[in-house]
């Protein structure tokens, strides 16, 4: 039995806990363009992250086919919309039904330091990832000081 390995499962578990704590600490409104009356419960649930290159949005869309998702950026508003359909065979009886089906649309106001013309979206394992690059203006520039 291997007790210690270079990439031990305890490392990834430790990283998960760290990530969970960080995500909890950042709990808050991911800049919705329009506040829903409840504030919560708007589909899809969204987490917003930053790195040096810009903004990353992660949305939970389990059971939604990537082909049924539309991502649109207009001025500084990002809109994600689509539909989740649930298909079941004929002559089926439900024992338990917790998963909802229906249409969704969500508009998010992008901050000023990102470029709404530079957006990419990928969908994998029911997570939609939208990346908005930092605008050129927001990147630090080195200005050469010339001798006068």
């Amino acid at each position: 039995m291997t007790r210690f390995r270079f990439a031990s499962p305890f490392d990834s578990a430790g990283r998960l806990l760290t990530l969970q704590r960080e995500v909890e600490r950042a709990s808050g409104n991911p800049f919705d363009a329009e506040q829903s009356p409840s504030g919560r419960g708007v589909f899809p649930s969204t987490n917003v992250f930053r790195d040096d290159d810009g903004l990353t949005l992660r949305m939970e869309v389990p059971g939604v086919s990537p082909a049924d998702i539309s991502v649109e950026a207009r001025e500084n508003t990002l809109t994600v919309s689509g539909e989740r359909t649930i298909q079941i065979p004929e002559g089926t009886s439900y024992h338990r039904r917790e998963r909802g089906a229906g249409r969704f649309a969500r508009a998010l106001q992008l901050p000023r330091d990102v470029d709404p013309t530079n957006v990419t979206a990928t969908c994998k394992n029911g997570i939609l990832t939208v990346r908005v690059a930092k605008s050129e203006n927001a990147k630090p520039r080195q200005i050469t000081v010339q001798a006068a």
């Binding site: 998960l16 969970q20 917003v48």
Partner: peptide, 20 residues
């Protein structure tokens, strides 16, 4: 869940927890 997809990302506003 895989934590790899979150490398170098700093959460700024979150609505849902990530977990197994």
């Amino acid at each position: 869940v895989s934590v790899q997809d979150y490398e170098n990302l700093t959460p700024v506003a979150t609505e849902y927890p990530i977990g197994n």
